Amino acid sequence: MSAQKVLKLSDLKQDAAVRVVIDDIPIAVVLDSNGEVHAIGDTCTHGDISLSDGFVEGETLECWAHGSAFSLRTGRPLNLPAYEPVPVYEVTIDGDDILIDPHVTKEVN
């Protein structure tokens, strides 16, 4: 499987998340305050809530329902009640196009 075009960079707003679904895999695509695009699993591991409805602050995406913040770089929760990470996906920017392969996750330390 190869990366698929999911959005245009110009469709993203800074410090906001957009939900996309590729091959039935929900992904939150985020443009952080540094202008970097991230893609993480869109489902909170604590409450089965869409993370893209949450709040972006710095390099985190916070679940609106229970307040768990997830690192956009590692997918790890930074506070309770979530304790399981979400997947992090490689993002490729080609001109104005954002491409993601939902079957390839980043190796994070």
Rank of each mutant, 00 (worst) to 15 (best):
73 R>S: 13
30 V>G: 11
67 G>E: 11
107 E>W: 01
18 V>S: 11
69 A>D: 12
34 N>H: 06
43 T>I: 15
79 N>G: 07
19 R>W: 00
84 E>M: 11
81 P>Y: 04
17 A>H: 02
86 V>S: 03
79 N>T: 03
59 E>S: 15
8 K>P: 01
68 S>F: 02
46 H>Q: 05
109 N>D: 15
63 C>P: 00
108 V>W: 05
99 L>M: 13
31 L>D: 09
23 D>N: 12
52 S>W: 09
19 R>S: 14
90 E>K: 11
46 H>Y: 02
84 E>W: 03
108 V>H: 08
34 N>P: 00
65 A>T: 02
65 A>D: 13
53 D>I: 01
57 E>T: 09
107 E>I: 06
41 G>S: 08
13 K>E: 15
17 A>S: 13
62 E>Y: 01
41 G>C: 03
35 G>L: 13
97 D>W: 03
76 R>N: 13
80 L>N: 05
51 L>C: 09
95 G>W: 06
49 I>P: 01
22 I>F: 07
24 D>I: 00
12 L>G: 04
55 F>M: 15
51 L>T: 10
24 D>R: 14
97 D>P: 01
107 E>D: 14
5 K>L: 06
53 D>W: 05
66 H>C: 05
107 E>V: 05
80 L>C: 06
92 T>D: 03
34 N>I: 01
33 S>M: 09
27 I>C: 12
92 T>N: 07
89 Y>A: 06
64 W>E: 09
19 R>C: 13
1 M>Q: 07
102 P>V: 01
59 E>L: 14
71 S>F: 02
41 G>A: 04
64 W>H: 08
30 V>L: 08
35 G>F: 12
63 C>F: 01
49 I>S: 11
88 V>N: 07
9 L>D: 01
108 V>Q: 04
41 G>D: 07
81 P>H: 03
12 L>F: 10
32 D>M: 08
23 D>C: 10
44 C>R: 06
14 Q>D: 00
25 I>D: 04
7 L>Q: 12
50 S>T: 08
11 D>Y: 06
54 G>Y: 08
76 R>K: 15
76 R>S: 13
3 A>C: 04
77 P>E: 14
36 E>V: 13
36 E>R: 11
109 N>S: 12
96 D>W: 04
55 F>E: 14
92 T>F: 01
17 A>C: 04
19 R>V: 00
93 I>F: 05
13 K>D: 13
109 N>F: 07
34 N>K: 14
106 K>A: 03
36 E>M: 12
20 V>R: 09
60 T>A: 13
95 G>H: 04
16 A>H: 05
82 A>W: 00
74 T>R: 08
92 T>I: 05
73 R>A: 15
11 D>V: 09
74 T>E: 11
90 E>L: 07
14 Q>H: 00
33 S>Q: 14
68 S>W: 02
58 G>K: 14
53 D>L: 14
44 C>Q: 02
62 E>R: 15
74 T>Y: 09
11 D>H: 11
66 H>Y: 06
103 H>D: 10
87 P>Q: 09
43 T>G: 01
75 G>L: 14
68 S>Y: 03
56 V>K: 10
77 P>R: 12
35 G>P: 11
77 P>F: 08
28 A>S: 15
